[in-house]
Design a protein around this nucleic acid. Structure first.
Lengths: 204, 204
DNA sequence: CCAACGCTATGACAGATGTCACTGTTTTTA
DNA sequence: TAAAAACAGTGACATCTGTCATAGCGTTGG
């Protein structure tokens, strides 16, 4: 019997999914969490074979949960189940040790099969995802520096260059240069596109 | 026994929800559709007491289904069940005769209660929703027009004024005026803040 | 019918934004 | 240690963005 922790914020989806999965004789939903903080609390109490983890949640999102788990040395395998086909989040999740990543439009049988595979120690990735990994491996370092991260955060809060400069105690020209660099790295043309990308990909 | 047609594109959610609702002795999911076209086809075959309708779907979305139903004179009551708190869609759905509008983060008991109320001929709106209607009634000048919605959508995709102008076949100046108007209505200072607000509030 | 509104458009303007080239300092790392 | 980054800055430049005033056109509702 596979013991699962199901983490999903939407009550209906969570209960429905729990019901469906419990119909399979090999699977048992031991516990359910409706946000990241609750998930961590339940992980501390229960010992489960796998965590079924949604990405977008209030309080603490999926990546945050993964991060905290790793910090605590928790090695419980995690299968990401998300609505969004977001390659960067995927990569981050994998780097944080997630063992599988599937979209919510998956068929029930496939999901059950994925759960069993992950528990058996295998990796489960959808093809759209592996494509991206290959592409990324071929391309060089386009990672944001700490300072660029900070500036991007400010941009994502809607600040102008002038405001950011004042907040970070830099000249406006410096911020402009950082912004320019960020745009190049993210491969976008202006700050609005950068912010959209940052929000969608949880770069912030 | 209340006969339901459940329309929802995500397999997991649909099956899960069907299971949950069938647990209630008064409710029976007669048929399930995974997109709008299938929903219309099933409506022609089955006679049901209520349609549980998702909004975002491939092929034909929720609004499209409502529209077609009204064109055909189909008076079956419809309860919208959606993830997104989208004011505009809500208003359109109500104008097309939807009898209820609830978010997917609703509790199961509330959903069941909502279904029964709608079948009984009542209207069911969540407070988040009525709040908006009130706000709208109090300050109609703050509502985006159709065109402004369209422009905001484009902005949220990262388009520049020039690109939007070309896409919508307007002059760049016109788009600038629309953008200016949008910023005023959303009470923000630049397009980046507008896009952030639009994304966070699912205005798009 | 006429007022109100939505949509389109123009021109002028100030200020914000992004790019480039070039110069330093400090920290990291190979 | 020396090279490579990251970090901070300046100035010039072209372009984009947002505001404002103004105005014509079409539709709608009282």
């Amino acid at each position: 019997m596979i013991k699962c922790l199901l983490v999903e914020d939407q009550t209906l989806v969570r209960l429905g999914l729990a019901n469906l999965l419990n119909l399979d004789s090999a699977i048992n939903i031991e516990a359910q969490a409706e946000d990241g903080l609750q998930a961590l609390a339940l992980l501390a109490e229960h010992s489960v074979d796998i965590v079924l983890l949604d990405m977008r949640m209030p309080n603490l999102d999926g990546l945050g949960v993964l991060q905290k788990m790793r910090e605590k040395g928790d090695k419980t395998p995690v299968l990401i189940i998300t609505t969004f086909e977001d390659c960067d989040v995927l990569v981050k999740a994998l780097n944080l040790g997630a063992r599988g990543y599937v979209l919510k439009n998956i068929e029930l049988e496939e999901l059950i099969s994925a759960i069993k595979q992950v528990v058996a120690g295998e990796r489960v990735l959808q093809s759209a995802v592996t494509d991206f990994l290959l592409k990324k491996q071929l391309s060089p370092q386009l990672c944001l520096t700490d300072k660029e991260q900070t500036v991007l955060q400010c941009m994502s809060l809607g600040m102008s260059n002038k405001v950011i400069a004042k907040k970070l105690d830099n000249s406006e020209g410096t911020i402009r240069n950082h912004v320019s660099q960020i745009l190049a790295k993210l491969d976008v043309k202006d700050r609005t596109q950068a912010v959209i990308k940052a929000i969608n990909q949880n770069l912030i």
